[in-house]
């Protein structure tokens, strides 16, 4: 009871912090200088149609590299924490998945993965990108795991795709340092015409690599969690 009361008190204090923030909120009527810069310069400087993508991949590309690293770190720690349990063989007492799930996953999983590839390769044109596409690819992997929990994915292949795309991402960033304006500058390739698939310089390339990396990281987390399911 005391514990619950203390928690309530803390939440009320936090609410008291939020209340003035909420009351003092006035919606902007025009973009702030940072957003205005991005809105004005993205199309002519970078050639990307999706301004959010331009911010994520180019203007704040270093931030995104760090974020992909954090994701890699969490995937690696999940693998490390669950590592020992994977060695012990489990008893085969499973009920097989239903006919609908098995057949449906056979039909849907390739389509879902194709959709993921579409989403990350069109990240500079549509509201998609590497993170969304990677998550969609991992959802295809999740469907396969649901249909057949005994299925084993090659950790070696997942790890290979993951590290290869990570290394290529950094190399493209370094190429920007020598051939364009700075680290992760997308103008190492021609920016082309806004709205075309092959435009925005290296952004589609970088976002595809991010998509592969995020997809393989999520897939490895799912595989790790699935393989330690039995207790």
């Amino acid at each position: 009871m005391v514990r619950r009361f203390a928690a309530l008190l803390l939440i009320l204090a936090l609410g008291a912090v939020f209340l003035p923030l909420f009351l003092a909120y006035h919606p902007d009527t025009s973009l702030n200088p940072t957003a205005l810069y991005y809105a004005e310069r993205t199309a002519q400087d970078l050639g990307a149609a999706n301004i959010v993508t331009a911010i994520v991949v180019t203007y704040r590309g270093l931030d995104t590299l760090g974020e992909v690293t954090v994701l890699f770190l969490s995937a690696a720690i999940v693998g490390l924490v669950l590592a020992r349990d994977r060695l012990t063989p489990r008893p085969h007492t499973r009920v097989p998945a239903g006919e609908l799930l098995t057949t449906g996953s056979r039909l849907l999983a390739p389509l879902i993965m194709l959709l993921g590839v579409y989403i990350f390769s069109n990240g500079h044109l549509t509201p998609g990108g590497g993170f969304q596409g990677g998550a969609v690819i991992a959802s295809g992997v999740l469907l396969l795991l649901l249909a057949d929990p005994e299925r084993r994915f090659g950790h070696r292949i997942i790890g290979f795709i993951e590290s290869l795309s990570g290394v290529a991402y950094v190399l493209i960033g370094l190429a920007g340092l020598y051939y364009a304006g700075g680290f992760l500058d997308n103008r190492i390739l021609p920016t082309g015409q806004v709205g075309q698939l092959f435009s925005a310089g290296a952004i589609p390339l970088i976002y595809s690599l991010i998509g592969l990396k995020v997809g393989s990281e999520f897939s490895s987390i799912l595989a790790d969690l699935s393989e330690t399911e039995e207790l």
């Binding site: 902007d28 940072t34 995104t64 995937a75 987390i221």
Partner: peptide, 17 residues
């Protein structure tokens, strides 16, 4: 404003991790 959207995009992924 596109900046908060870019921030949330990364925050969601970190949240999953």
């Amino acid at each position: 404003d596109p900046v908060p959207q870019a921030l949330v995009l990364t925050a969601i992924v970190i949240g999953v991790g």
